[in-house]
């Protein structure tokens, strides 16, 4: 189970056949395990990592937002976090240590959208004490992939 997760985390395009060969397990077992992982929510989904620096398609505006909140009695940060992450504009929500509590990544069609979301939805929420919004300017590296440069490999195509 652990190895299947590791393999898929690294390369989601591996087929059950590939995995069965790598791990020397029969395909049926591998398929069943993957299904189980998907059903139980260990595997949430599969998607391509797009280099937006290169793609010509529409690029959303993103902001990293620091949020200071007041935790609720008996429920800690979970209650307010849920109120926030349920907005579809919020694509990432982490609770962090330090000078603020929640770290959000928020997406919108343009700067105005994001600003409006902060001003009208996020900041007025009960329990939100303050926000600091950083608009994202350029991505250099994401999920282990470097986005701005070509591959670093200069091997000859054959050697002994």
């Amino acid at each position: 189970m652990k190895e299947i997760i590791e393999l898929l985390e690294e390369n989601a395009r591996l087929t059950p056949e590939d995995i069965s060969r790598i791990l020397k397990k029969d395909i049926a077992t591998v398929k069943k395990t993957i299904e189980k992982l998907e059903k139980s929510g260990v595997i949430l989904g599969y998607k391509a990592i797009i280099n937006e620096e290169k793609s010509k398609s529409f690029k959303p505006v993103r902001a990293v937002i620091e949020v200071q909140v007041t935790p609720k009695r008996n429920q800690g940060f979970d209650y307010i976090a849920e109120r926030i992450y349920k907005f579809s504009e919020v694509v990432t929500c982490f609770l962090v240590s330090g000078t603020y509590d929640l770290l959000l990544i928020v997406e919108g069609d343009n700067i105005h959208d994001v600003a409006q979301f902060v001003a009208e939805k996020l900041a007025p929420l009960e329990g939100v004490r303050g926000t600091v919004t950083h608009f994202l300017l350029k991505k250099y590296k994401q999920d282990g992939f470097v986005l701005t440069k070509g591959k670093e490999n200069h091997r000859q195509s054959i050697s002994l």
Partner: peptide, 21 residues
């Protein structure tokens, strides 16, 4: 070797060094 080095767009399983930098 010269034949290989002169061809483009091949997949080489002939490289005796790591693919990692």
């Amino acid at each position: 070797f010269d034949l290989v080095l002169g061809m483009k767009d091949i997949i080489s399983l002939g490289i005796g060094e790591p693919d990692f930098v």
